[in-house]
Amino acid sequence: MGVLLPTLAMCLKKLKEVKESADLTCKAKHTFKRSIEYELQHSNIVFLQVFTVLVLVAAAVAQGPPYGAPAPSYGAPAPAGPPRYDFNWKVQDQPSANDYGHQEARDGYDTQGSYYVQLPDGRRQLVSYTVSGDSGYLADVQYEGEAQYPQQGYGQAPAGYSYN
C-alpha cells in the first residue's frame, strides 16, 4: 500500500493538470471564437459603410447637378445685329510720369485698335492691332524715342571708408 498511495497521488495530480490544461484550451478556443466573431462583425460593418457611401456617390453622380440654368426673369431683347462699338481713353499724369491710353473700334467681326504706354526707360511703346474674322490677333509693335539709362553710381564713400 506504501507504493500505491504515492502513485495514486501522482495520478490525481496529473489528472488535475490535464483538467486545467483542458480548461485553458477551452477558454482559448472560446476567446479565439469570440475574436473571429468580432472580426467578422467589424468587417461586415465596414463593408456596409463603404457600400452605403458608394451607393450615395453613384446616386449623386447619376442625378447630375441639382440645379439648372435659371429661367429668364425678364424679356431680354434679342441682339439687333452684329456688334458695333468704338471707345478710347487715356491717362496723362505729369507728376507720376504716367502716360498711357487705348482706342478700339469694332464693326461685326472686324476689330481694330491701338494702345500705348510710356516705358520706364523713357521710350513710348505703341501697339496697333487688327482682328478680321477668324484671322486672329495681328499686332504691330513700335517704339518712339531713345532709351535713357541713368548713371548708376553709389556716390562717394563716407569719411573714413574706402573701396578697395
Results as ranks from 00 to 15, higher is better:
146 E>R: 09
14 K>F: 10
42 H>Q: 04
2 G>I: 05
119 L>G: 04
30 H>Q: 15
20 E>Y: 02
134 D>Q: 07
56 L>D: 08
121 D>E: 09
86 D>E: 14
148 Q>P: 01
134 D>H: 10
121 D>Q: 02
124 R>C: 07
20 E>H: 04
92 Q>E: 13
158 P>R: 01
152 Q>A: 12
18 V>P: 03
41 Q>S: 10
27 K>P: 02
118 Q>K: 03
6 P>R: 15
17 E>M: 10
26 C>D: 10
17 E>T: 04
140 D>L: 14
38 Y>C: 04
90 K>F: 05
72 P>N: 11
162 S>V: 14
17 E>R: 06
117 V>P: 00
157 A>H: 11
85 Y>R: 01
9 A>K: 12
98 N>Y: 07
133 G>K: 01
125 Q>P: 02
42 H>V: 07
123 R>P: 06
101 G>V: 09
95 P>A: 04
21 S>T: 12
31 T>W: 05
12 L>E: 15
126 L>H: 07
125 Q>W: 06
26 C>A: 13
75 G>C: 12
18 V>C: 10
107 D>P: 01
146 E>I: 12
159 A>L: 12
41 Q>Y: 03
103 Q>M: 06
121 D>H: 00
22 A>K: 10
77 P>D: 06
41 Q>N: 06
147 A>Y: 06
119 L>W: 00
87 F>G: 01
99 D>G: 03
17 E>P: 00
110 D>C: 04
145 G>I: 00
127 V>K: 00
135 S>Y: 06
106 R>D: 07
41 Q>F: 02
67 Y>L: 10
1 M>H: 10
63 Q>K: 14
29 K>N: 15
107 D>H: 07
158 P>F: 09
41 Q>W: 02
54 L>M: 15
113 G>L: 00
158 P>L: 13
42 H>K: 06
120 P>N: 08
64 G>A: 08
79 P>S: 12
127 V>N: 08
128 S>I: 02
3 V>T: 14
137 Y>I: 01
115 Y>R: 07
55 V>I: 14
73 S>P: 09
134 D>P: 02
54 L>P: 00
24 L>I: 05
